[in-house]
Design a protein around this nucleic acid. Sequence first.
DNA 1: ACCGCTCATTAACCCAGGTTAACGCTGACC
DNA 2: GGTCAGCGTTAACCTGGGTTAATGAGCGGT
Lengths: 199, 199
Amino acid sequence: MSAAKTILERLAGDSLPDWHLVESALRRKTLAPGECLFLVGVAHPVVYFVKSGVIKMVYETYDGDAWVKAFAAEGRFFASLAGLSPGGVTSFSAVAACSTSVESLPYPLLDQLGDKHPQWQRALRKGFELYGFRKEARERDLLTLSAEQRYRRFIEEHPLIAERVTDRDIAGYVRVTPVALSRIKARIKLRQREENDAS
Amino acid sequence: MSAAKTILERLAGDSLPDWHLVESALRRKTLAPGECLFLVGVAHPVVYFVKSGVIKMVYETYDGDAWVKAFAAEGRFFASLAGLSPGGVTSFSAVAACSTSVESLPYPLLDQLGDKHPQWQRALRKGFELYGFRKEARERDLLTLSAEQRYRRFIEEHPLIAERVTDRDIAGYVRVTPVALSRIKARIKLRQREENDAS
DNA sequence: ACCGCTCATTAACCCAGGTTAACGCTGACC
DNA sequence: GGTCAGCGTTAACCTGGGTTAATGAGCGGT
């Protein structure tokens, strides 16, 4: 069973017709740590499904900084929305944060299936709904939490990702430099020690 | 012609069947500056369409800070995605940033229409797609730009909103305190004056 | 005209995080 | 085994933004 099928049927809440069309369009790819799935600024109307490992989605600035928009681990799907619409280009790069294997589907095919079958249209709508929902949560964290709070939340909510990616990438996700993250970790450790001493 | 119809048909790229059902469910509301459209944490499966004015979507933290997630001016639609799904509650509050009039539709009706007509399902999907697209841009700005850059971009891209809302709200959107925004503005003005003197 | 309110600005002080650089560790490659 | 590169940590210094407080401008209410 492909990862894509599991993920899409969970979205649809139903089995999906014409699956053979999808099956033959499905591509599998394995990436070594640091290997690039797609670059920013290219036409790339493709949806990815993560089978194992972790993909990081990265924004790069002119001055060479790289900030991590999001991680996607097993069971997640993702795409650059900007790169899906005709004529659009990706707004970020996708890079393997550790050994990772993914499946991919061309978005035009999904779009066609959506026009043909209500189950597919529904799956796509739910997909965008979920995607928007995640972005909303991320946006809220960036707006309302401090750097230390964002770090703590990430460790709590994604311990399995945290142990597989470098601190450098975690820093990029928390939106601080690696140096600052190191200080934050030291601060937390210090406070824990103080609490233990007090008790 | 209602604002909702214009916006939804633009999304669908088509005319929408069963519009009379929508028409009778449509509610119009006018808000004074500072008046609240809905509060955070309530079940509120409603989609809004802005006819005139500006709505600000606000995250409030425990310690009383209020950060502006987004503004919606005429021609925009919005909703709390978290508040749309059954059993979910809104993740932010919506408040009029100036005199504003809006139209609203219950989401369950739209969901039903989506199951019934492909044109509606398509409109909804495009709606979520667009919503996600906007979040993606906002997320990128928060990750990759400095406070000053975020301010400049906001002024450039939304001059018509900027002139209708308070600096306090702009500060909340840029994610700095009003004091810091004032300093940023002073810094920009100072630099402009220096440039003029040099020439 | 007066009051009271909110908003924008400015100053003073403080602190978290950015920057640069040094150091040690580990793991890949020869 | 030796070399080299990248990572995480720590220290020193600097800066942008948070905090608090004072001031003044604008404005609705009486």
